[in-house]
Design a protein around this nucleic acid. Structure first.
Lengths: 119, 119
DNA sequence: GAGACTATACGCTCAAGGCACATAGACGGG
DNA sequence: CCCGTCTATGTGCCTTGAGCGTATAGTCTC
């Protein structure tokens, strides 16, 4: 089966994971990813344009995302936009990262870290 | 109050968070952190000795951890060991990181990422 | 005292991100 | 029409941090 190992991509950088997360929503172009990440994670992860586009290039090269020619919104077109979507590998890697993070959070809960910090 | 902002330290690198997590257990020396992280996160985050000790130096400098002279185990002494523990800042930062990660995981769940991936 | 294990630390290199800047089309106002 | 602003993608320079190998040295057992 020559199984593809998502683990070899772990751990994802926080930025890379944010991008995959934004794309899990559906296809987006770069600038829209920028706005989505900024708005969701607010101040904690400031995604700079330069960082984003270079991260996109890396993710493309690793086949975790792909460029899709189908622009999802026939109105509101902009020739400059490049749309990206998750590949099956990208989904697999993102899921593996979710599992890893859940492991960390589970560990955090069993220790003194979250005592008294429950909302 | 001149409140200390844990957010300025976010996002933590996966390695840094693993270390803080290992120390949340209680004080440990470097080599023991190595074994703890290796055993818990298994293959996904391979913590190399060089990486660890340099990360410890950075965390010390940021006052997220401190060296404690009280060796917790009076028997089984080893002069070479340097024990580390979380500072209050370290705990605050680790908690902030936990909040950030929980936000990411919440986002992952509301999207198609985890559909069908429930254990 | 030889060798394995424990323990800390440095050197070299590359990957990734922060930040500034370049480019350019779209859009609205004066 | 020209200007500024927003949208959109991208490059250049520098720093940080991690991967990986290696150095150093104490401990423990045989």
């Amino acid at each position: 089966m020559d199984k593809f190992r998502p683990d070899t991509f772990l751990p994802l950088t926080p930025v890379a994971f944010e991008i995959l997360l934004a794309l899990a929503d559906g296809e987006r172009h770069g600038y829209s990813i920028l706005q989505e990440v900024e708005s969701r994670s607010g101040g904690t992860v400031a995604l700079h344009a330069g960082t984003l586009y270079r991260a996109l290039a890396r993710l493309l090269e690793s086949d975790l995302i792909e460029e899709c020619k189908t622009s999802p919104d026939p109105a509101n077109q902009d020739e400059r936009r490049r749309y990206y979507g998750l590949t099956s590998r990208g989904i697999a890697v993102a899921r593996a990262e979710v599992v890893r993070l859940e492991g960390q959070l589970r560990a955090a809960r069993t220790r003194r870290l979250l005592k008294g910090a429950r909302a």
